[in-house]
Design a binder for these strands. Structure first.
Length: 573
RNA sequence: CGGUAAUUGGCGCAGCUUGGUAGCGCACUUGGUUUGGGUCCAAGGGGUCGCAGGUUCAAAUCCUGCAUUACCGACCA
């Protein structure tokens, strides 16, 4: 491709509304332009990268026997009403009416459509298992689109759906897809880790997220420093400390703690470690006949934080989790938040495992401006239930039993689920088994955010000059930078010849034939992140040489003109 | 949806406090100059100052409302 026939669209300055590095570089390198919030045009360079990611994904999915199809983005509302998600999915589901006033949705995902297709086309266990995928545009009306294409409303996704007679068969395909994903991200050249995940609203038995590790990632992931254990922080089990609870040695004592409303302030006033205190959070419970909005107390060690996902899974706790208002708390405890504690508290009490092993600790006295010291479970607090309700922190024991927890940040680029029979039952999709009995299908679904992979790759691979593409997804493999071509016949001749030769052997080459100064071309090539550069100038042509430079390693070499082709072939193979 | 901020040519910004001819840099066009890391000079094209209403002889500037956008919190590929 000649620059003069192309749209490079590089920018010197960073548009003001781009915050994330990948977003800034995607705009500056001419990959994308914003049309509206969360909606982006992919410029030619961006599309080249997108297509490369898609190709790798296709090859690896085909390799494990998945078959490609393509479903509509606009889907009839009836299907979504049938699965129950028309209401359940919430405002992220964009709805629209056609001229006949029939309601449709813009597909945020395709479980309904694929299950509908399968229930009509598949009727025998002999046709199973089967695994379909598509690469297609999705629309989710995100509350807050951010970071460019990282969280856009419209985005490109690869979604696959497998169907099975038995759970065992589903499990087998699930792990096959797990392997395929691992290979995909390795081939793309990303440092990526599978992570045990919450199945969330989609439901189902087993789920893994695939995360590209990057400091700017939105998700926190807990790793063991000694084993392969990795789990989303919201999902990682906080194991009970190994040490048993010490004996009570202090009497229960009420002390004045004026103005101390936070764990930090109380700890400072009483000169104790926050680890020797507990905090009390009041949330809404499940409504009963007697009480329309009962309250539940959650007790955590002072330095720990509540894991809302774990808490809302408990029987006593209302889901989704909501905190009690100050008025509700005052009415039931006689105290405002800041002086709450589990002693003589007239509501169900749930104690975190780590708080439960404390002895002689500090907590609020349910009386404004007062705390208790020397508090002990079983002596001072009797009716309570012990659960895991906190977020893991660095240094915790790993729940796998090996090593300690480390927390790193990641960008979720893939997610696989064992859905089980949820959609098959809702949409009544089944087959006849060997004995002629009707069985609901077991289903797995597997997503990769193709456009997000592009952003994540940049987030993980950039420097102050621009993008450092992994070779496998670079928009071009080679850039030809001829200097002062318009003034030198020799440069023109060598550049044109090399360009034709490279095209001839199928190399994706950008020939920067603009009448620009060398510095401009160097900067653009580095910004766009093309891995291999060949620089052609009068100076080296005196010796029939050109210069080679590698974008990532910075390696430089002088090459005889007639060896460029074989040199590059060696580098690219 | 809550909190914060912004909106002036394609991009980055100044001007607003104290109302009076809309400006700078980049990019673009033309001519010249320069040529191994974002040359320099000159001439030029391009703006309903987000929208609506109000105050005023006069509004980018003051007032009111609305819209859009970004960032921080709860969801997700």
């Amino acid at each position: 491709m000649r620059s003069s026939d192309y749209l490079l669209a590089t920018l010197k300055e960073t548009p003001a509304d781009a915050e994330a590095i990948s977003h800034q570089l995607m705009l500056r390198a001419g990959l994308i332009r914003k049309l509206a919030s969360g909606l982006y045009t992919w410029l030619p360079t961006g599309v080249r990268v997108l297509r490369k990611v898609e190709t790798i994904v296709r090859e690896e999915l085909n390799r494990v026997g998945a078959i490609e199809l393509l479903m509509p983005m606009v889907q009839p509302a009836e299907l979504w009403q049938e699965s129950g998600r028309f209401e359940q999915y919430g405002p992220e589901l964009a709805k629209l009416n056609d001229r006949h006033d029939r309601t449709f949705v813009l597909g945020p995902t395709h479980e309904e459509v694929i299950t509908d297709m399968v229930r009509n086309q598949i009727s025998s266990y002999k046709q199973l298992p089967i695994n379909f995928y598509q690469i297609q545009t999705k629309f989710r009306d995100e509350i807050r689109p951010r970071f460019g294409v990282m969280r856009a409303r419209e985005f490109v996704m690869k979604d696959a759906y497998s169907f099975h007679l038995s759970e065992q068969c589903l499990d087998k395909t699930y792990w096959l897809m797990h392997q395929a994903y691992t290979r995909i991200f390795a081939r793309i050249g990303l440092e990526c880790r599978p992570v045990a995940a919450d199945t969330g609203s989609i439901g189902g038995a087993l789920s893994h997220e695939f995360h590209v590790l990057a400091d700017t990632g939105e998700d926190a992931i807990a790793f063991s420093n000694e084993s392969e254990f990795a789990a989303n922080v919201e999902m990682a089990e906080a194991v009970a400390p190994q040490t048993p609870r010490p004996e009570a040695s202090q009497p229960l004592q009420e002390v004045a703690t004026p103005e101390a409303k936070t764990i930090e302030a109380v700890s400072q006033q009483l000169n104790i470690d926050p680890q020797q205190s507990v905090k009390t959070l009041i949330v809404h419970g499940i409504a009963t006949d007697e009480q329309s909005q009962p309250l539940v107390a959650l007790i955590l060690r002072g330095d720990h934080s509540l894991n809302e996902i774990k808490a809302q899974k408990l029987d006593l706790v209302h889901s989704p989790l909501t905190f009690a208002s100050e008025a509700e708390i005052l009415a039931q405890t006689g105290s405002l938040p800041g002086s709450l504690g589990p002693v003589n508290l007239n509501m169900p009490i749930i104690v975190d495992r780590s708080a439960c092993v404390l002895a002689d600790f500090v907590c609020g006295a349910n009386k404004d401006g007062y705390h208790f010291t020397g508090v002990n479970f079983d002596r001072d607090i009797c009716n309570y239930q012990v659960e895991d309700i906190r977020n893991v922190v660095e240094g915790d024991l790993s729940p796998c039993g090996q090593g300690q927890i480390e927390i790193k940040r990641g960008i979720e680029v893939g997610h696989i689920f064992q859905l089980g029979q949820k959609y098959a039952k809702a949409l009544n999709a089944g087959v006849l088994d060997e004995s002629g009995k009707h069985e609901h299908l077991n289903m797995g679904c597997y997503g990769i955010g193709i456009s997000r992979v592009v952003a994540a790759a940049i987030e993980q691979n950039h420097d102050k000059f621009g993008i450092k593409w992994p070779e496998a997804i670079a928009p071009f493999q080679v850039v030809l930078i001829p200097m002062n071509m318009h003034k030198s016949h020799r440069v023109t001749e060598v550049a044109e010849t090399l360009y034709q030769q490279l095209l001839g052997i199928g190399v994706e080459v950008l020939f920067d034939d603009r009448k620009e100064r060398p510095g401009v071309m160097f900067n653009d090539a580095e910004l766009i992140g093309i891995p291999h550069a060949i620089i052609i100038g009068e100076r080296n042509l005196d010796e029939q040489m050109v210069e080679y430079k590698h974008r990532i390693t910075g390696d430089k070499a002088k090459l005889p003109v007639d060896e460029v082709l074989s040199f590059l072939q060696g580098k690219l193979s």
